[in-house]
């Protein structure tokens, strides 16, 4: 297991997961979202190739109200 920060919360996930697998493991239900790893955007096309590492900071952002 590795420790990562997901949306500001420290979580333990399996080692070696890519972003798609991490999303599945989190049971993320939001329809539209985007991911940044260590404050860098990762496009949906790169989910399979992007492996989550110990200590990574992951942001998963979804639509909300805005002005």
């Amino acid at each position: 297991m590795i420790k990562v920060s997901i949306n500001g919360e420290i979580k333990e996930i399996k080692q070696g997961l890519n972003i798609s697998q991490m999303i599945d493991a989190l049971n993320y239900t939001q329809q539209g979202f985007a991911v940044a790893v260590n404050t860098t955007f990762v496009s949906i096309k790169s989910y399979e190739q992007t492996i989550i590492n110990d200590g990574d900071t992951i942001d998963i952002l979804a639509p909300v109200q805005g002005g």
């Binding site: 949306n7 993320y28 939001q30 952002l61 979804a62 639509p63 909300v64 805005g66 002005g67």
Partner: peptide
């Protein structure tokens, strides 16, 4: 106008 914010799993 809309925005993006962190949304945890299950919030939906």
């Amino acid at each position: 106008t809309v925005a993006l914010r962190r949304q945890s799993a299950g919030e939906g």
